[in-house]
Write a protein that binds this DNA or RNA. Structure first.
Length: 209
DNA sequence: CACCAGGTTGACC
DNA sequence: GGTCAACATGGT
């Protein structure tokens, strides 16, 4: 079994890129909306869609839940997959409007994760992003970049396996989880293309123990 | 013009 | 458990 030095890698990334301070949003519910909109989509497009929703006062569970699907489709069109995203957002808004966002978030971490997973359009990464960045509970977010980098370092495994690896090797800390995931994304966007794998500045720190 | 983006789902093996 | 097409716009 291979080992990595995930703490060392974190330090390297932080020194290289500085604090990312994710997730950019005014409210927790805006984070929830963002997690769905950003699926397979550039963040600049998400910002536009969020601005559109905000203009129409649809960045709250109650109003978004009652909005016309056609209008939501129009506002999130720039994010792609706009039909499914519109209906999923509307459905998610109904869930939060019905339960109350404070109530939704005031359950134990794993319970919240399961609740989010039960919503259509919310898979592993989106559920964990909501748990971590909207509810401020400790769940390490794995994404395609993280998997790619770990594979690059010789660590393979499915989502849960990689998540357990990070959560076991790192101290349970919300701010650390937030910053680490953000740093991985910023690093990978520049240095780890799907086909390209440039000189990896992580390799020295990822050496086997 | 081809490829990719801060994925998820349902069908199938 | 894993793989795959479908979902769709916008940037390089």
């Amino acid at each position: 079994m291979k080992h990595t030095n995930l703490k060392q890698i974190y330090t390297t990334l932080l020194n290289e890129f500085g604090h990312q301070d994710w997730w950019p949003a005014d409210t927790p519910f805006e984070v929830v909306i963002g997690t769905v909109l950003t699926q397979q989509t550039r963040w600049t497009n998400v910002e536009q869609a969020i601005a559109n929703l905000k203009e129409h006062g649809l960045l709250e569970p109650e109003t978004l839940a009652q909005a016309e699907i056609e209008l939501i489709e129009e506002l999130v069109h720039c994010c792609g997959f706009y039909r499914q995203k519109a209906s999923r957002l509307n459905n998610i808004a109904k869930y939060f409007a019905d339960k109350g966002i404070e109530n939704v978030f005031s359950v134990p971490t794993d319970e919240l994760r399961d609740e989010m997973l039960s919503l259509n359009g919310v898979g592993n990464e989106t559920a964990d992003s909501i748990v971590l960045y909207a509810a401020n509970k400790p769940k390490f977010v794995i994404d395609a970049y993280t998997s790619r980098i770990m594979n690059c370092l010789g660590i393979n495994g499915n989502y849960i396996r990689l998540q357990e690896l990070f959560e076991q090797e790192l101290p349970t800390n919300v701010d650390l989880y937030k910053e680490y995931h953000a740093l991985i994304v910023e690093f990978a966007k520049t240095y780890c293309g799907k086909k390209r794998c440039g000189e990896c500045l992580l390799l020295p720190d990822a050496a086997k123990v």
